[in-house]
């Protein structure tokens, strides 16, 4: 049993290729989550603001992205864009782009929710103590928003990581795609290969996402007390 498992990972460059696949998965996740934070936070602050037009436009964007399956977006940017506009983007670029579009939309909504759930009186009682606008943001508003926001951000991060295997369909050799290729090749000689390879992938995703999940629970508990 164990031999059959080990032999798969020892054959050729199988293990190295899985690691390369994992590298791609992590690159897409990290880039998309980072960019989503960078773009989503200001977008969310704008959505919570009182300017008349911008929140509506951002809301529209959010709704469009939300109802659109990720896979459709991936196909749209990977296949359709090149046909219509003759823009050829690499599978990697398309992946980061699509996951950032999605992540930004969700992130902005999280930020908007956190900001507008803070009672207006918190600003006022800060001002009444003589704090200027900058100090009110720094000492009163920002720490509370971060606390309200972090569980949501962490949840979104794991959701984004979990969704990356969709890049499979635009032929990006991420962890899952590489695993599938290995199973296809070694499946003839080793009928249990799918168990070992997909089991391995399962363990890897678990090892990435579970600690993030634990971190979220830890922070929630710590800020509660």
């Amino acid at each position: 049993m164990l031999d059959s498992a080990l032999s798969i990972f020892r054959t050729g460059r199988n293990l190295a290729r899985l690691m390369e696949g994992l590298g791609i998965t992590l690159q897409i996740s990290a880039a998309a989550v980072g960019l989503s934070l960078l773009l989503g936070i200001p977008a969310g602050l704008l959505m919570a603001g009182r300017r008349p037009l911008i929140p509506k436009l951002l809301r529209l964007y959010l709704e469009i992205i939300r109802v659109m399956p990720i896979l459709v977006l991936l196909f749209l940017f990977y296949y359709s864009l090149s046909r219509f506009l003759n823009i050829n983007l690499s599978a990697m670029t398309v992946s980061v782009l699509v996951f950032t579009l999605w992540g930004t939309a969700e992130m902005s909504d999280l930020v908007r929710g956190a900001v507008s759930s803070l009672p207006r009186h918190q600003w006022e009682s800060g001002r009444a103590l003589g704090l200027n606008e900058m100090q009110v943001s720094l000492y009163v508003v920002f720490p509370q928003i971060v606390r309200r926001l972090l569980p949501g951000i962490i949840n979104l991060t794991t959701r984004m990581i979990k969704t990356t295997p969709f890049v499979f369909f635009i032929n990006l050799p991420d962890l899952l795609k590489v695993g599938q290729q290995i199973v296809e090749v070694s499946g003839i000689r080793n009928p249990l290969s799918s168990v070992w390879v997909y089991g391995f992938i399962f363990a890897v995703y678990f090892a990435i996402c579970y600690p993030i999940s634990l971190l979220s629970r830890y922070l929630e508990l710590r800020w509660q007390s």
Binding site: P119, H121, Q122, E124, S125, G126, A128, L129, G130, L131, Q135, Y139, V140, P143, Q144, R147, W223
Partner: peptide
């Protein structure tokens, strides 16, 4: 100084931090 109907203490600070914020930071 002003005191409001709904206290409006800062929930992320303890009692002492709430009180010291103004005198120390402002």
């Amino acid at each position: 100084g002003m005191v409001f109907q709904n206290y409006e203490l800062f929930p992320h600070f303890n009692v002492l931090e709430n009180i010291l914020l103004g005198p120390v930071r402002v």
